[in-house]
């Protein structure tokens, strides 16, 4: 059902391209700080946009400190708890970071932290790949509304939202542009 024009608010830009780069830089610095120079650390992006974010973080870390952090991709489709609620999803690739995850500190990277269910699935998926020493979580945006006891170790930006709103992260690698927008639900 189409809503009256006035009821739909215009999308609001939360992070511009410049903001987004700054936020990524900051997370990279925080990781270096909290992990004593990213020793024994691997980054694993959660598709779709966690992958490129993880690679950007690794790139920044290399720039700042000259450290090569292994990067992987962790597809969580087969671990989701909402499979039966939607049409069958295509499976994405999983790439274990060079050197594996056993005994390492693994930082999961995603674009938006919302209910926490994606992260829950990612933890399950990760434990089937190996046994990390510890697992941390880095997200670009935390929009609240957690349904599980999960919190992020690194947060680019906290954005208070209404449930009906949606946060969309765009990245050059996947969407051709860097920005974060908030799309309004009804008033």
């Amino acid at each position: 059902m189409a809503l009256p024009e006035a009821a739909q608010s215009q999308p609001k830009t939360i992070l511009t391209s410049t903001d987004l780069q700054r936020v990524v830089d900051r997370i990279a610095h925080q990781i270096l700080e909290k992990t004593q120079g990213a020793a024994d650390t691997a980054l694993m992006g959660i598709p779709t946009r966690g992958g490129p974010l993880a690679r950007r973080l690794a790139d920044r870390i290399r720039t700042f400190e000259g450290v090569d952090v292994p990067v992987g991709v962790l597809d969580i489709t087969l671990y989701r708890d909402d499979l039966r609620r939607q049409a069958t999803r295509a499976i994405g690739p999983t790439e274990v970071p060079p050197g594996g995850v056993d005994g390492r500190r693994v930082i999961l990277v995603d674009d938006v932290l919302f209910s926490g269910r994606t992260v829950r699935a990612a933890l399950d998926a990760l434990s089937d790949i190996g046994r990390p020493r510890s697992v941390q979580l880095a997200v670009l945006v935390d929009r609240g509304h957690r349904e599980l006891p999960i919190r992020a170790d690194y947060v680019g930006k906290n954005i208070p939202t209404a449930l009906a709103e949606s946060v969309r992260v765009a990245l050059v690698e996947t969407d051709g542009v860097d920005e974060v927008k908030l799309f309004g639900g009804t008033q």
Binding site: L78, Y79, I91, P93, D124, S127, D128
Partner: peptide
Amino acid sequence: EMASLAGREVKKLP
């Protein structure tokens, strides 16, 4: 993708 999971330690998926 399923084949790429076959080499893992835990072969079972939930």
